[in-house]
Every structure is written in structure tokens, then in C-alpha cells.
């Protein structure tokens, strides 16, 4: 029992099918409290489907999802249960431009989440909490009145992170959350995410195709290919000494000084026959 209590998120035997297509096939992994796990794979590998099941946006065909020791495989039946689950797992999407309401100011968006999850707070306390959240992600008081379109891409993503933090979740799913950012801004947000984890002991599930980002932000990693988990271990192991041929090819595909020469020696891993 103690062992399970230490796990922030536990996925076991997860399966999801769309018609005859098996999107996720018997996937299991776990993240301990305060840990950070990278879910690596290319498009169509099933990684986003897993995120959706964890969040309750999709239902699993088989298997189980537990967060903070509580089962969340079946849909939440009551409002209270939905809110409790929201305090367990939050998500930051890839593109804040489409995940933020274009007509809501950042302040009002954050206050709405705070009000939902901390019903005992009075107005002044809520405003203070919004300021704290903005401060935590490196935004300023003046951003409370800003609309998403008045902010830069990096600031918008910081606002999306603040919204996830507003519910004080145990786990944050980062679904390609830095992929759309410019290089210099991506570095700032990666540093911010590392700081927040250290400060708040929050748990990360990072979904990414970018192995360098996975290296920078996670302790453990699982690699998915066509719905199946093909390799797992510490991030350092998986990236430095990949065992599965798919991981080896992924690793070899990262641009580097001798890269073009190296890839030409690698056999094709594209879908030669089919039109996937």
C-alpha cells in the first residue's frame, strides 16, 4: 500500500481502439510523486491518446489509470468528483494560442480557476492568489488585464502554465508544451518548468518528440511506437544506451555534426508500403 501511495500517476494495461485501429496497446508506466517522466514517440505513436485518457477526455477500452492512488479510469459521475480529479491532473497544451480563450483576460481566467477550486477564499485573497500565480511563472501584475493576443507566444505559454498551477494539481501533463516556442523563449520556459518542479514538488508527464527537451526535463522516460511501449528506463539510460532498435533510430535522427553521413547508413524507417 505504501508503494502505491508514493505514486502520483499509474497507468496499467491501457488499451484504446478506434474501430479496427489499435491506438494504444497494453501500455503501463508509473511516476512517483515529484518525479518527471518523458513520454517519447512520433506522430501516431499514441502518446497524446494516453494523455487524453489520463485527463478523462477519452475513455480506455481496457486497463486502469490511477492518480494520487485514486482510480480515474471511468468517467467522473459528479461535479465534485470532476473537480477533485482536476486538482489531481492538469495539462498544458502545445499551442497557447488555441488553448486560451481569446476574449478572456489572463486575470479573469486565473481567478475563475482559483474560485472553482478554493471556494473558501474571499475576493481579496483570490486576487492575491492570482498575483502569486503570475509571479510564479514570471509574468507581471499588468498582465492580469491582458488578452492572449496582446501577449507574446512565450508569455501566453506562461499564462497557460499558471492556469494549470491554479488548481494546485499533483500532476501536470505537458503535451509538447515547449515545441511551438522560439529557441530563446523555449530555454526560458524549460528553466521555469524545472524551477516550478523543484519549488512545488509537482509531478510532470512530459509528452515530446524532442529528445533534448526530454533530457533536460525528465528523470525517467518511456518510448512508444505504434501504440506500444517499446522501451523504458531512466532518461539517461534510454538516450545514452538505447536498447530497442526503434529508440536507437530515433536517437540517431537527432541532428548533430556528423548527422547527414550517419542517417544515410541507417535503414529507412518510413512507412515504405502503407499510406499511414
Amino acid at each position: 500500500m505504501k508503494l502505491t501511495d508514493d505514486l502520483a500517476l499509474e497507468v496499467s494495461g491501457l488499451r484504446k481502439t478506434y474501430g479496427s485501429v489499435v491506438a494504444v496497446d497494453d501500455v503501463s508506466f508509473a511516476i512517483r510523486r515529484g518525479g518527471s517522466l518523458g513520454l517519447v514517440g512520433e506522430s501516431g505513436s499514441g502518446k497524446t491518446t494516453i494523455a487524453k485518457i489520463i485527463l478523462g477526455l477519452e475513455s480506455a477500452a481496457a486497463g486502469q489509470v490511477r492518480a494520487c492512488g485514486r482510480d480515474r479510469t471511468a468517467a467522473a459521475r459528479t461535479l465534485g468528483e470532476r473537480r477533485r480529479r482536476a486538482r489531481e491532473v492538469q495539462i498544458v497544451f502545445q499551442d497557447p494560442h488555441s488553448s486560451l480563450d481569446p476574449r478572456q483576460t489572463i486575470g479573469s481566467m486565473l481567478e475563475a480557476v482559483v474560485r472553482l477550486h478554493h471556494r473558501d477564499l474571499i475576493a481579496g485573497e483570490r486576487r492575491q492568489r492570482v498575483m502569486d500565480l503570475l509571479d510564479m511563472v514570471g509574468l507581471h501584475e499588468r498582465h492580469t488585464a491582458a488578452l492572449p493576443r496582446e501577449m507574446s507566444g512565450g508569455q501566453r505559454q506562461r499564462a497557460a502554465i499558471a492556469r494549470a498551477l491554479a488548481a494546485e494539481p499533483e500532476v501536470i501533463v505537458l503535451d509538447e508544451s515547449v515545441a511551438a516556442l522560439d529557441v530563446s523563449i523555449q530555454a526560458q520556459v524549460l528553466n521555469l518548468l524545472a524551477d516550478l518542479r523543484e519549488r512545488l514538488s509537482v509531478t510532470y508527464l512530459l509528452i515530446s518528440h524532442d529528445l533534448a527537451v526530454v533530457r533536460q526535463l525528465t528523470d525517467t522516460a518511456v518510448v512508444m511506437c505504434q501504440g506500444q511501449l517499446v522501451e523504458s528506463g531512466t532518461t539517461a539510460q534510454v538516450l545514452d544506451d538505447p536498447q530497442h532498435i526503434y529508440t536507437q533510430r530515433l536517437r540517431a535522427s537527432v541532428p548533430g555534426p556528423t548527422w547527414v553521413r550517419r542517417v544515410s547508413a541507417t535503414p529507412s524507417i518510413l512507412d515504405e508500403g502503407g499510406a499511414s
Binding site: 529557441v183 530563446s184 530555454a187 526560458q188 528553466n191 524545472a194 527537451v213 533530457r215 545514452d240 536517437r251
Partner: peptide
């Protein structure tokens, strides 16, 4: 500023 695939950096040197 780019993270590296071969090692984890204590901190990325972000351009302010």
C-alpha cells in the same frame, strides 16, 4: 539556449 540530447544541463543559458 538549445537543450542537449547527450547531457542534462544544470540550467539552460536562456537569452533574456
Amino acid at each position: 539556449a538549445r537543450p542537449r540530447v547527450d547531457r542534462r544541463l544544470a540550467r539552460l543559458e536562456a537569452i533574456p
